[in-house]
């Protein structure tokens, strides 16, 4: 039953969803990029630590676009003679990035305090 599989998948992906959104927004801070570039960039910068399948980017990208944090446009790539769908950060997206970044920082600090209490004391 396809509807059920769908729902299970949705559960699994929801954990990483917030983080992925933030990474995409941060990547786009450098300038417009298409899906493949964004994926490659995240993979490269994390030294292949986040070995995501590029495909999982697209639902996230479309979700961000629906929320108005990014816009998209078909443009010809400068190095190839082909059109790609370029995503561009909006003002709303920039604000959202700040919000998510601070939330992530709080989260990371909170986790750190639990994990390494000694470091906190010293």
């Amino acid at each position: 039953m396809s509807s059920m599989e769908k729902e299970t998948q949705q559960q699994r992906s929801s954990l990483l969803q917030g983080t992925l959104d933030m990474l995409i927004l941060r990547t786009l801070l450098y300038g417009p990029a298409h899906g493949h570039q964004i994926g490659k960039h995240i993979q490269r910068t994390t030294n292949d630590f986040l070995q995501m399948q590029h495909g999982s980017l697209y639902p996230a990208l479309h979700r961000l676009e629906k929320r108005g944090w990014v816009t998209s446009k078909w443009e010809t790539a400068p190095d190839r003679n082909r059109e790609f769908k370029y995503y561009r950060l909006t003002e709303k997206g920039k604000k959202q990035l700040v919000v998510e970044e601070s939330q992530w920082k709080q989260m990371a600090e909170a986790v750190a305090r639990v994990m390494w209490p000694a470091a906190e004391e010293s």
Partner: peptide, 16 residues
């Protein structure tokens, strides 16, 4: 490298 394209499509639909 891309992953399950059918799934991508479906998930993107969900995102819409």
């Amino acid at each position: 490298a891309f992953g399950n394209t059918t799934l991508i499509r479906e998930q993107t639909h969900e995102a819409w």
